[in-house]
Write a protein that binds this DNA or RNA. Sequence first.
DNA 1: ATTCAGCACGGTACGACGTA
DNA 2: TACGTCGTACCGTGCTGAAT
Length: 310
Amino acid sequence: MKRNLNKFDLNLLVAFDTLMMERGVTRAGRALGITQAAMSNTLRRLREIFDDPLFVKSGARMEPTPRALELAEPVALALQKIRVALDQERFDPYGSKRTFRIGMLDYFTAMLMPELTQLLSRVAPGVVVRAVDVGGEDEISALERGDVDIIFSRFQWVPPKVTLNRLLEMEYVCLHRKNHPLVGDGKLTMEALLEARHIQYYPRGMDNTVVDEALAERDLHRQIVCRLGSFGMLPALVAGSDLMTCMPEGAARVMARQANLQVSQLPFPTAKLRLAIAWHPRTERDPAHIWFREQVKTTIERSEWRRQPE
DNA sequence: ATTCAGCACGGTACGACGTA
DNA sequence: TACGTCGTACCGTGCTGAAT
């Protein structure tokens, strides 16, 4: 059902969110600084709009209906974004000359930086972003030392004092040159994958790749003839040979576009790469940091490499 | 918690007026 | 004549207090 936002009173979402938290009309009204009667009327309007009771009496409390539970998270997230946006008025991005440091592996840099810098050139032309290559356990200590402002990475574990915001999951894929002799009609078979010679990319802090772990579970191994600790030479090596490499889909799409390569789905399932950003609580309420985290999140949410290829 | 009556406030429509 | 601004009347919305 489509709603016209012009006709929708967005204050109702604040009331809904408060009802979810307080589980009572009187308590929610008190929290919002209105009388219980006004709150009851607000609930009536919410019920009309969503065509659902939303909250039903259960003992002394008003419990949410399934429809209310369905709405709760998206409404809370939207309100959180608005609150963050309103907090930003104390930081002037357009006039700022600040440098923000992101700790991330080099292939995340390739994924994030083109679109992030493009976004910043419009909204904060004086802001500088510095990519700091950190890996594995170093990531958290770099954050704690204040060497970086945020980390964009996969995290197996973070200490409780670090705030983590999971953003996306990504499949692993295989990257190779176009018209590769082992890849017929654009589909990569297990036989071809095992017959091919591979470059293994192993950034700092990642001893074994997810793909090799998934193969090992099947008692299989790919032929690794070259191991690289950095991302820089990968596109040229893959483009100029019959070597294949496996990596997260987002990075593979960026590389494929840059070096005119081909991305193929793996012929077996692997664990997904779970990407998140993390920051230290001391920067939690800092308007400049809040603003910068939003820019990073927005870039990731809108990024080209998250969209399905045509 | 719900409903109702009364009240305040803001938005909209419309006419009068001034200006280019 | 067209356009913008201002004042006024009307209406819808949301509030409070009281009754249920």
